[in-house]
Design a binder for these strands. Structure first.
Lengths: 236, 236
DNA sequence: CGCAGCCTTGACAAATGTCAACAAACGTGG
DNA sequence: CCACGTTTGTTGACATTTGTCAAGGCTGCG
């Protein structure tokens, strides 16, 4: 287990404040693994044996019911996922699969809970992380319930633009099919939604998006900080 | 400030594990207030000055955007709400209003954060609470994205039935208009959805629901523990 | 070149929202 | 206790949104 692999983890807000001794203990049972793209990491309903930390690549959190499935969020480096299940010693509510070739650290859930019980700093860091995750899901919920799919797409593009530094042209972060699922619509609908944004100055060439008229698009999208806040890291 | 008013609070999983001294300190700045029905308690976007604890009555958490509004959840005694905002010292993401005459304890957020920093037991209790809230929202999100409104209603009725002890007949917990909003549909649609469940043995008389054919309804609803778990207390 | 995967398009169907009218339930004041 | 007005729920007709299915285009790669 190369220590260097854990350096990135130690730097995370989640692990930075904890005592050295406890971090070392946590890492003793942990290991880092490389996965190719499109690999199932966990299945919803399974017991949460490991806290996962995405070191590089990207992971899709999704869920299935009655033959349908939906992407709930994407986890990007460096952040953790299924923290809540780990803490509660409960089963996963979401499945996870790699979107790209990914490097992932696996920390035994039992160890996390153990250290959590004895290290107050770690416990406090977990609170902060969980509160952030909670607020991210609440925002997503508001997005879903208060907006039409066209409005969701428009606001998504504005958020993505901001994350990319604000330039008028930028690229989508993943396949349109998955984007559609994240936004809560079908792929066909997303195609039409893109065309539906043309009147507001949005042009699409493959995965390249250009916002030709910022003011027009914003007037339509009506972005709101209470829904569209930029997450510090990807929500987990 | 009657100590008796705080007895119920002390018994909450959130406050039970903390040191007496710290609990006393927390309650020093707290106060309990009675509110009539339909009173706005907080507005989304406001800074989170107080952690709220519903002692009796019921509180609706809702949100508004662009002239639309939606109920996200209902908080019932005894539980807290806006814990995440309090911890992160961030603004509220949801508004809150009383549904009925309610008794609510208000604990200064600054005190909560202060005690949180020095009492590891309290910090751990908060983690557990937040993890539960997080999982509740994730479940709600899956419900929304994976099910049609008819399926959501069917599963909601099954959950409500279970919470009421499993009898075939039981009452709705609030107005149909609000139920519709919680389920993510319009009031008119809810009316039709109730009729749409008649073929599966559901009858409605005012707010009285009867599930005439349990097996039939469950075959249609396909309830799933990863979406429809019964919250220990109401989600907050 | 030709297959495979992703995206788009069109025609259509189903789900959901909107508006208007009405009915039923409730609370209040006479 | 009744009459009234307000609120809540229901219904019908219709518009909009969204999903489904099938076909075809584009692209990348063997």
């Amino acid at each position: 287990m190369p220590d260097s692999a854990f350096a990135g983890i130690r730097g995370l807000a989640l692990f930075a404040p904890m005592a050295d001794k406890n971090f070392t203990a946590l890492m003793r049972g942990a290991y880092v693994q490389n996965f190719p793209a499109q690999i199932d990491l966990i299945a919803e309903g399974d017991p949460s044996d490991f806290l996962h930390v995405v070191l590089s690549g990207a992971v899709d959190l999704f869920s299935t019911w009655n033959g349908r499935d939906t992407s709930l969020t994407t986890v990007r480096p460096i952040s953790t996922f299924i923290l809540a299940a780990t803490i509660k010693d409960a089963c996963y509510l979401m499945s996870a699969r790699t979107l790209e070739k990914s490097r992932i650290a696996l920390i035994p859930s039992r160890d996390v809970r153990e250290i959590f019980d004895i290290d107050g700093n770690f416990a406090r860091a977990i609170v902060t992380e969980l509160a952030q995750c909670y607020r991210a899901v609440v925002r997503a919920q508001k997005d879903l319930k208060l907006r039409t799919s066209l409005e969701r797409l428009a606001n998504y593009l504005l958020r993505l633009q901001r994350r990319n530094g604000g330039a008028a042209t930028f690229g989508l972060e993943f396949e349109k099919r998955r984007l559609a699922s994240v936004l809560g619509m079908t792929a066909e609908n997303l195609s039409r939604a893109f065309k539906g944004l043309q009147p507001y100055g949005v042009t699409v060439e493959g995965s390249r998006i250009t916002i030709g008229n910022q003011a027009d698009l914003e007037r339509f999208a009506k972005p709101n900080p209470l829904i569209d806040a930029i997450p510090a890291y990807g929500p987990a």
